[in-house]
Design a protein around this nucleic acid. Structure first.
Length: 346
DNA sequence: AATTAATACAACCGCACATCA
DNA sequence: TTGATGTGCGGTTGTATTAAT
């Protein structure tokens, strides 16, 4: 059985709305309001599905909508709320007057997700990629870890390739003090062969370097796992920071986003200090969020800032994302990233 | 200048829930 | 209580525009 369709699909127009259609719909709604969307297209003289009319009105024609660029404060609001409620766009939209859920969803998918990834932060969990890797390494049994790590590294490799294609990055040259090659020569080592890219070149320097870095990551993860297994299983959920300067107020000053007004740090997100369950921190939605301020929909961003500042690891010339906790017994450097790699894509 | 790839935005789809007779 | 209908919502797809080659 199932419900009857909202309209005769064959007799309705689809696709982009014309200005004439917009005018008809706006004029009709101005006069009669928005009751009974099924009747509106018929009465307004539109060959459209009622649902399509409703969407056009709510997402575009409504007079109280903003249509311009998102401001930085709006972006911050979106990211903060997303870290709390996840993909519940209507909830987020409710906090941003003049913006629709569709607007916000599109903006998130096209801009903000990439912005966060470019900062080395997982847009789903709002945690540094390093943190997720540490969780994988310390939560599961080795066979599971191996598979998950492989999968995660595959994703991370894609991210690195993406970043490499956007920016000049050179791991080896950085260390040896030789200036890195230009981006275009990196991507197109042989100018006579435009199809030749970092992804398929045979001399393959960039590709090799990526693989080498991937290998380093694998080694570090397995080292972390090994150290973890030598000790009784305690779940430390160590705080991982970007090395540079977690400042007194808890923000990671080193995160480039803070300079651009796009602040992203432990204190601005979730309960970073709540170490009881990493998944409560990671996937913090309205339904499973355990944050103290869940009732009003937001966490207390100010508390739990006094994380162990000792859990830092500094490396020369590159930003080191690592962890140092008494439970691990040693510094576990998960990986080294050049500063470029965790900078936002400009 | 032509072609291709990437991006941004609008619109659609299907499911779930709310409302009402 | 139940079924029909309306609406809200999130995910996905389509398309126009822009950038890169």
């Amino acid at each position: 059985m199932g419900r009857i369709p909202c309209c005769e699909k064959d007799n309705v127009k689809r696709g982009q709305w014309t200005p004439e259609e917009d005018n008809k719909l706006s004029a009709y709604i101005a006069q009669h309001g928005t009751r009974n969307w099924r009747l509106i297209p018929k009465n307004a003289g539109l060959q459209r599905c009622g649902k399509s009319c409703r969407l056009r009105w709510t997402n575009y024609l409504r007079p109280d909508l903003k249509h311009g660029e998102f401001s930085e404060s709006e972006e911050q609001t979106i990211v903060k709320l997303h870290s709390v409620v996840g993909n519940r766009w209507s909830l987020i939209a409710a906090q941003l007057p003049g913006r629709t859920d569709n607007d916000i969803k599109n903006h998130w998918n096209t801009k903000l997700k990439k912005k966060l990834s470019g900062m080395g932060i997982d847009p789903v969990t709002h945690k540094p990629f390093s943190h997720l890797m540490a969780e994988i390494a310390t939560t599961l049994a080795p066979p599971q870890v191996a598979h998950l790590t492989e999968a995660a590294l595959g994703c991370f490799k894609d991210e690195m390739l993406h970043l490499l294609s956007k920016k000049r990055v050179d791991f080896q040259f950085q260390q040896s003090g030789i200036s890195p090659p230009r981006y275009d020569s990196l991507v197109h080592p042989n100018a006579n062969h435009p199809a030749s890219t970092a992804y398929n070149n045979i001399s393959g320097k960039p590709d090799d370097r990526i693989d080498e870095t991937i290998q380093k990551i694998k080694m570090s993860v397995s080292r972390a796992m090994q150290q973890e297994h030598e000790k009784p299983l305690i779940r430390p959920w160590p705080m991982i920071t970007s090395t540079e300067e977690t400042s007194d107020d808890g923000f990671m000053d080193g995160f480039p986003g803070s300079a651009s007004g796009f602040q992203y740090g432990p204190s601005s997100y979730g309960n970073e200090g709540d170490i009881s369950s990493p998944w409560n921190q990671s996937i913090c939605t309205g339904s499973n969020c355990t944050g103290g301020d869940q009732q009003n929909g937001l966490h207390d961003k100010g508390k739990d800032r006094d994380v162990d500042m000792d859990r830092e690891h500094t490396d020369i010339g590159a930003k080191t994302i690592g962890l140092k906790s008494s439970e691990f017994g040693a510094d576990c450097v998960l990986w080294d990233l050049s500063n470029d790699l965790i900078n936002p894509i400009v």
